[in-house]
């Protein structure tokens, strides 16, 4: 009886998210404060990287969310193309600026971290470069949304752009890897990719626990923001529809 598609009804979505939003926001705030305070105040310095290791509690979660936000937009775009639920298209629109901000944070913290570690603010390292390209994709996506006036046309065009963009973003990732082997793996002991699998081996537990808490916090923050911004988009869309009707009368 209660299928997930019920939430495709805008009213139902707003009602449900209204109830969930305080909890998710509180959880986001709590986890982020816990993870970041723990990471910042109560973890030792790394023997090679000194106190810069503390940047990881922001750098890795934001990088993770930058990619996950795009993945969420991809899924939402597919749902829009297949089932044509407006909430889905609007959720993709709502997520894009969050993803873009996360990308900027990942890039900025990466550059600040790279400065003392690699001796340079910016290195054309594959990981950094592909993030920069991802940021360009976000910009194009957001710009296309805001350039088109008709909501349905905009939703259609941006979801196709999101699909094509995903393929090209992956392709760029491999192209960039081929183009420059990079410093990221060699120079940084705490590489992001290592966290998923061989955590014990690469990052000792002292660093891992607050990092995972912080990652959960960023995830909750993302969900809370997507809820809020999707509500806003739904309301804005409804308002445009009402205003258009008023003008017709």
């Amino acid at each position: 009886m209660s299928s997930i598609w019920e939430y495709a009804n805008p009213k139902k979505f707003i009602a449900t998210t209204d109830r969930l939003l305080p909890w998710v926001s509180a959880l986001a705030l709590g986890l982020m404060v816990l993870g970041l305070v723990w990471g910042f105040f109560f973890t030792p310095d790394d023997f090679r990287q000194g106190s810069t290791v503390k940047i990881i509690y922001i750098h890795v979660p934001s990088a993770m969310m930058a990619i996950n936000a795009w993945a969420m937009m991809l899924v939402a775009s597919l749902v829009w193309i297949v089932r044509r639920h407006h909430v889905s298209a609007l959720a993709a629109r709502a997520a894009a600026p969050i993803g873009a901000v996360m990308t900027v944070i990942a890039l900025a913290t990466g550059a600040i971290w790279g400065q003392p570690m690699w001796g340079t603010w910016w290195e054309w390292d594959p990981r950094l470069t592909s993030f920069l390209i991802l940021f360009l994709f976000y910009l194009g996506y957001i710009a296309l949304w805001s350039a088109i006036e008709d909501d349905d046309t905009a939703a259609d065009l941006t979801s196709i752009l999101c699909l094509v963009g995903s393929v090209f973003a992956l392709l760029s990732r491999y192209a960039v890897n081929f183009w420059n082997q990079g410093l990221h793996q060699g120079a940084s002991v705490l590489r992001a990719g290592a966290l998923a699998g061989d955590t014990e081996e690469r990052v000792s537990n002292v660093f891992a626990t607050p990092l995972f808490i912080s990652m959960a916090g960023f995830l909750m923050l993302f969900i809370a923001l997507v809820f809020l911004r999707t509500q806003t988009e739904i309301r804005a869309r409804r308002m445009r529809a009402l205003l258009a009707r008023e003008r017709m009368q």
Partner: peptide
């Protein structure tokens, strides 16, 4: 095709197309 109906499509077109050109340019 994406920007065909837009009045100020030119700049947006570059913003959309240039990231897609990355793999071709690299290789």
């Amino acid at each position: 095709a994406l920007t065909v109906g837009l009045k100020r499509g030119g700049l947006l077109l570059s913003l959309l197309v240039l990231p897609l050109y990355v793999p071709t340019l690299i290789f």
